[in-house]
Every structure is written in structure tokens, then in C-alpha cells.
Design a protein around this nucleic acid. Structure first.
Lengths: 192, 192
DNA sequence: TTTATTTACTAACGTTCGTTAGCCAAAGAT
DNA sequence: ATCTTTGGCTAACGAACGTTAGTAAATAAA
């Protein structure tokens, strides 16, 4: 059984997520990062190639997690409505388990350089497509209203993507409560 | 009748909104800004006190517009459900009329310095409170479901705040279509 | 035990940052 | 016609940026 060894590299990564979230990628200097880790800025380069590399790792790691979670979610349910609900919960789950990194994913991806930037955008589009497919199916099955699919997915994803903001509030909402409330609201609306 | 004179100051402001949106506040230099305006960086300081001042103006101008639009919206309708719908449309309207500035408002406010940062957060909270009050009222009037009010408002505002992203897409959605679709989805849900 | 690798350090590089100082020409006011 | 204000300019300031070079100590491999 391998013991968990928190090495420097992962310590740097963890700290980078925290600082990129708090101050933004562009406003976080390598000296800031080094100081928080407890070493000199130059020493960082024994563990990584560039500042940009850190951002890449964070963004694509989270992207991967979203894909994985979606895949698991929709194969866990039979009917479309439940699949959608499961996908929503899975999405919220990824965010909840990566509060710093997902914030960076959402706000700092613009600082990716080509060709990664294009690759990133494509992945996002592809991920959203999964949700569009679900809604398309739900409409065909006459379970969903005939909504504008793109707008509906846009609305859903936008609401979900902001949930990282919910975990610092005073009344501690659990991930389950958040997921249940939001998915209900989006599926059934606020009106009686 | 006064003719519109597009002076340097407002030209700088307009360009700042554009660049802060495209590259982010921290990654936009005063030299970038000057170049886009067509003057030297030092010349900017004949028209403004600091880079920070530009961000302040943008953020608080938009905040003011949100308040104003909300106030007008809810006084234009009688019943709570229609008030909420009007407020949603008004919110989307402010964004649609300030595509660059509202993006800056949403993403770059973290770079505000105290005491403006605190003032800004307070204004946001106060604005959201207007929506919470509406939903509270709707529930009391038994027109809305007994949702978690904070979560519901969070979901609504989050979905609305992303709408700046919708206007660059290929199929040209009008502001009216967007507002109608999203407010319907949030009020009535996607499920039949 | 010797050798090789890893990881920290100090010093410094070239660049860019926001901003100020001082100057000069054009425009407006008297 | 003279004076004042406005709004450009060039030059430069000190500070901070990402990153590299070179070195020494600790650790791992042989």
C-alpha cells in the first residue's frame, strides 16, 4: 500500500490553485507563489517549466473530471429526466470537490496560450453538447417542453458553474442540498 | 440641442471596457490602452488619475444601472410573478446594453481596492436582496413554490449574469428572445 | 564509499509595469 | 494680440515581472 507523500510538485500545484483563484492568474506572481510555498521563486523551476504550465494542468485536469463525471452520471440512470438530474449533480460534485481549481477553470482559461486555448474551447463545447443531447432527447420523448435547447443548456450550465461561490456562505449548505435545490428549480421552475 | 462630442475621456473609457473585457484588467497595460486609443501611455494621464480609477468607474456605473433598471421594472407591474419577470428582463437589458462593461463588472471587480471593494460587495448584496424580497413575497402569496430563497436567487442571478456571452453566437438571438426564454425556464422549468 | 541526482539557494538578465516630469504646440479666452 | 489652458509628446523613474545561470548541500543510487 503506497503511502501518500505530499511532494513539492503537488504542494506547488495546490498553492497555485489557491492563489490563482484568490488573485487571478495574471495578478499572481511566481514570487507570490514561491513565498506561499516557502521557497525562493527560482526554486520553483526545479519542479515546473513555466507559470503557463501550471494553468494548463489545472484547466485540463478539471475538464477531464467534468467529462468523466458526466459519463458516469448518465450511465447510472435509465430515463432522460433522471439522466439530466444525475449529470447536473455530477457537475456540481466536480466543482464541490475542486473548489479552487474549478474557479480557476472558469475564470482564468482566457490566459491559456494557443494551441491549448483552442483545444480548451473545443472541450467545453463538446461537454455542453452532452447536455444539449440530453435535452433534445427529453423533448423527443415529450418529457421536456419544447424549449430553445441552446439557451436552456446555457442557462443550466451558467447556474451550475457559479456554485463554487456557495460553499463559503455562513449557513453551511451541503453539496446534496445545493444539487437537489438547483436541479429541482431548473427542471420544475419556481412558479407553482 | 446639444450635439454628441465623443471626447477623449469617453473614448478612453470605451476602449478600457473593451480591453479589460478581452484581456482582463490585470493583463491590460496602460500602454495597451494608449495604443488602442492612438496616443502615448503618458498622455492618458491628462485625462485620468490612475488605471484603478477606470475600473472603479466601470464597476460602479454598471452597479448603478442595475439598481435603476430594477426599480423601474418592479414598479411597472402589479403582481409579484410579473414583477420578477420584469426584473429579470431589466437585468438582461442592462447587460445587453453594456456588453463590454458588464463583463468587466462581473469578472474584474476583484481588482477593486478598499474601500471600494467593500462598497461594491455591499451593493451586490443589496441588489440581490431585491430579488430575494420578490421571491419571498411570491411564496407568501402562494404563487411560488417553497424554494430555498437564497439558492433560488443565486441560481437566477447566475444564469442571468452569463448572458453577455450569448450575443456573439452565430444565430443572432435578440435580447427579447433571450429574456423570454430564460425567464420562462426559470419560472416554469424545463420539465412538462 | 563513491557517484549521480535532486532541490534548494543567490544573483542577475532583459522586459514590462504604472506613473511622473518637463516641454511644446494648438486652441480658447481676454 | 497676449495670456492661459488643454492635450499631446519624449524621457525616465523605481518597482516588479518571468525566467536563467551557476553553485552548494542533501539525498538516492551504484
Amino acid at each position: 500500500m503506497a503511502t501518500i507523500k505530499p511532494d513539492r510538485k503537488s504542494e506547488i500545484r495546490r498553492t497555485a490553485k489557491k492563489l490563482f483563484k484568490e488573485k487571478g492568474y495574471a495578478a499572481t506572481s511566481m514570487r507570490d507563489l514561491a513565498k506561499e510555498v516557502g521557497i525562493e521563486a527560482a526554486s520553483l523551476y526545479n519542479h515546473l517549466a513555466s507559470k503557463e504550465e501550471l494553468l494548463n494542468e489545472i484547466c485540463f485536469d478539471i475538464a477531464e473530471q467534468f467529462f468523466q463525471a458526466y459519463k458516469t452520471a448518465i450511465s447510472s440512470e435509465k430515463n432522460t429526466s433522471k439522466k439530466l438530474k444525475a449529470a447536473i449533480k455530477a457537475h456540481i460534485g466536480v466543482i464541490a470537490n475542486n473548489l479552487d481549481a474549478s474557479t480557476v477553470f472558469f475564470h482564468e482559461w482566457i490566459f491559456l496560450k494557443e494551441p491549448d486555448l483552442t483545444k480548451f474551447k473545443k472541450m467545453r463545447y463538446q461537454y455542453d453538447q452532452g447536455f444539449r443531447d440530453l435535452i433534445q432527447r427529453g423533448i423527443e420523448e415529450k418529457d421536456f417542453k419544447e424549449v430553445n435547447i441552446k439557451l436552456a443548456v446555457f442557462t443550466i450550465i451558467s447556474a451550475l458553474n457559479a456554485t463554487y461561490d456557495l460553499y463559503k456562505s455562513t449557513e453551511k449548505l451541503t453539496q446534496e442540498e445545493i444539487a437537489e435545490s438547483i436541479s429541482n428549480l431548473l427542471l420544475k421552475g419556481i412558479k407553482k
